[in-house]
Computed example of a mutant assay.
Amino acid sequence: MEGPVENRRTQERPKINIKVSGEHNAAFSISPNDMLLKAALEQNIDYPHSCRVGVCGQCKTKLLAGKVSPMVDLALSPLTNQEILDGYFLACQGKVRGDIEIEVRLGHHHVFPEQQISGRVSLWKRLPGDVIELRIALESPFFYEAGQYAYLAESGSFTRRCFSFSDAPPLDPKVGATEVGFLIKRLPGGRFSEWLFEKDRTGIKMWLHGPYGVMGVDEPNADGLCVAGGTGLAPVLSIVEHRLRTSATACFTVVYGVQKQADLFGMDKLTTLASRHPGRLSILPVLSHEPENSDWTGARGLVTQPLDENLGVDFGSVASFICGSLPMVAAVEQRLLALGVNPERIHADKFLPSG
């Protein structure tokens, strides 16, 4: 794709000029044919991103001049047809062909450099819903933000998978975490999750590589609406815990969807947070496949069902955080837009099986 004006200068290292609101505020160079997002993050550019595989749309960028080749089928892109016509592309899938000028929103989160740290499993615990709570005691401090994720791998294995942190990071950004937690669902046939579920992995050495993503970024004192499907609860727990601790006023509503009552893992963590911050956290579990004759008296149906004017949320001002499978997140996004949520305040993490 090409911007309105193609810059035909050829250089060994193409130059990227970044504009925000019509003013230059950053510039850097990359190697020819590099992916824009990868190169930006390697140089600690504060670039928005989450999935890094062309699904989430967080790295949406407008091309003002120059040439970028998209490495993903535009028919499968999260960008709308109008956005593509207006010159938008995904930085994670954009191969830079020469000098370019772009417009993107920067500077809204702190960039921690990628870290690769080893540790040992300190907790391996089966939870309802075929989920493992995994905790890793680290050999050195690890720095990350609420809502981010990292790659995990057993020491000596080439199989690695990404999972969101379920813990809030330390309050002091200069102090790294010495232990981190994850909620990992068994994926039938999944190489990593099947290995993890075979037996208690306490004491096993593992590697942690990250952090990635910017899902938890918004105005610190804004009220929040979180919608989580399954283990999408992990980043929600991280965000809610962190924001309740750092803001004296922000209140949260968490809509949490699973299939059956027997799948409700993590409720103890949510209720503990609610008891620590009285009146500031509302929890609404929703069951999609609970038998009609069960003793469940709570909400039923899809996780989008409770999202209406009766939820008690000011949709015009709320910051929303959505985490779960791609179809679930897409449905929730559309529902929130229809309810008047500002699209700039919809932050999503779309989980995809890998491997």
Score class of each variant (00 low, 15 high):
M1V: 12
Q11S: 15
P14E: 10
E23V: 14
E23D: 06
H24A: 12
N25F: 09
E42R: 10
V55T: 14
Q58G: 00
K60Y: 03
L64N: 09
V68P: 07
L74M: 13
L79R: 04
Q82M: 00
E83D: 06
L85Y: 09
G87Q: 11
Q93M: 13
G94A: 15
V96W: 07
R97H: 13
I100L: 08
I100N: 04
V104I: 15
R105N: 09
H108E: 14
H109S: 10
H110G: 01
V111S: 04
Q115I: 06
S122M: 14
W124H: 15
V131Q: 02
I132A: 08
I132V: 15
L134R: 12
A137H: 09
E139N: 09
S140P: 00
Y149D: 02
L152A: 05
L152F: 09
E154A: 11
G156K: 11
F158Y: 03
T159F: 14
F165T: 08
S166G: 07
E179Q: 10
L183D: 05
I184M: 04
L187I: 12
S193R: 09
W195P: 00
W195F: 13
D200Q: 12
T202H: 04
K205W: 02
L208F: 09
Y212V: 08
Y212G: 05
M215D: 03
C226N: 06
T231C: 13
A234R: 11
E241F: 04
L244I: 05
L244G: 03
F252M: 02
F252D: 01
D268K: 02
A274E: 02
P278Y: 06
G279R: 06
G279T: 08
L281F: 05
L287G: 11
S288N: 12
T297G: 02
G301D: 15
P306K: 10
L307C: 03
G316Y: 05
V329P: 03
R335H: 05
L339I: 01
V341H: 04
R345L: 14
R345N: 12
H347R: 15
G355E: 13
